[in-house]
Amino acid sequence: MTKPVLVPPGLPTGAGGAPAILAEHLTKRYAPAAAPAVEDLSFTMPRGATWGLLGGNGAGKTTTIAMLLGLLVPSAGRIACLGHDMARDRFTALARMNFSSPYIALPSRLSVAENLRVYAHLYDVPLAEKRIAELAAQLQLTELLDRPAGQLSAGQKTRVALAKALVNRPELLLLDEPTASLDPDTGDWVRSWLERYRAETGCSILLASHNMGEVERLCAHVLMLKQGRVVDQGSPAALLEKYGRDDLEDVFLDIARGRSRAEVPA
């Protein structure tokens, strides 16, 4: 029996029916008396788009991503990914999603191929060896397939993590700081690759990043988080216009320091 698709009437969903992510009044408190890590966060991300979560340390980006992935249960609110309610049907959604973060490693003693094989099994990927070879060719990993993952450079590890995140051809990809600790050249290569991948597959991407240039380049829409709340949102161009700035970094600083356009020095 197919599960009901959770789309409120009149909601813009983009291609493919349900929105990629529907978050309604999400709140997370790690302790009853603690300040909320995320508070009343609502957004609807359409299919096929790349959106960014932007915010300083402790703004709630990682907590939000963890809730979207089902690693963390919200204190209040509701999430549906690809039309599946994450409280009741998260495993069906997880089979169609994937995730990459530089802060979660892959087993370092296993070779690149073995790591990818493990995740091909976990995601029940058909023709796994063919898919691994295909990803290895696309991400320039073919020469590295027999190398232990722990012996790779930071750039190579990022490409392997991306291969793992794409092994099941996800319809929704969550990326936590995908280019953290990469040199500018490798970072640019990864960004170009993600742009091309989204254009070719129509995959929806939500990325959390501190890199304003990355967000400006990749994202059609940005959610600016501060102390767990969305303090502003819009396309990078709209935010630049609204704050009268030339780049998102200045917008980020304005928001982080609570400055309005009127207070911005000429």
């Binding site: 999603m97 979660i104 995601y123 029940d124 793992k164």
Partner: peptide, 13 residues
Amino acid sequence: SRNLGHVFVSPLR
């Protein structure tokens, strides 16, 4: 191996 996060966001019940 700091891999638990990947395992728990996979469809493995």
